[in-house]
Design a protein around this nucleic acid. Structure first.
Lengths: 111, 111
DNA sequence: TAATATTACATTGTTATACTATGTATATTG
DNA sequence: CAATATACATAGTATAACAATGTAATATTA
């Protein structure tokens, strides 16, 4: 029943929301890409496509909200860890204010 | 401090969210465009640009989630009232499930 | 040990939608 | 009568999620 519409809608909802999720998750921890995607899937049931994640992280790096560092592994491919910058922390705070307003608003009109 | 980024982000968050807001508001009431925009501004502090609203409503009509009817006024320009269809109500229910999951998830990772 | 799956990062092209700017037309008010 | 508010509408632009695809190393398993 209108599954296509709902599927597309979910994808649209992720725009912006994903950025918010990423910054929140990085607030207390450092993660590398693959691990991050798995972590978010477990924590939130949100599926992040790789083709979404990597371009997103590069945007956030360009905006200086996030920095990254390569970490060599004893075995296996090196991992790129992402870290929230000071600017990222400040920006996240502003986003949290808006998100709180928004979710309260939606709770109101859903009554 | 990074106002441009936050402003753009808010715009992105609205993608998808706006559809959800519109369907929720129309759930119990009929509104015409101009009134709707004012109403949402009061209820939720969400500003909907006219250039966003009218194309959005036409998409929702094309998807048969919403119908509309012209109502002549005793004086002034006729108003186009928007009404939620049965399909719209069903679709909204599915969206509400996803939204509940999403906002719970975000509450979790914000801790 | 050869084949397959998993880990790990990345880019290209497509699609969808919010917004700015602009346009039309009527009604009200100073 | 000029300015403002009401009321609907569209064209063009920017942005971001995603599918598909690619590269490469390691682990698993038949």
């Amino acid at each position: 029943m209108n599954e296509i519409f709902v599927t597309k809608w979910k994808s649209q909802v992720k725009k912006g929301t994903l950025t918010f999720v990423v910054l929140n998750v990085l607030r207390n921890n450092e993660f590398y890409g693959y691990e991050f995607i798995e972590e978010v899937k477990k924590l939130t049931a949100i599926e992040i496509a790789e083709g979404t994640f990597y371009p997103l992280m590069n945007r956030l790096k360009k905006e200086d909200l996030v920095s990254s560092k390569w970490v060599e592994q004893e075995s296996g491919i090196p991992r790129k860890y992402y870290v929230l910058t000071e600017t990222g922390k400040e920006t996240l705070k502003q986003m949290q204010v808006y998100w709180a307003e928004l979710s309260t608003s939606i709770k109101e009109i859903s009554k």
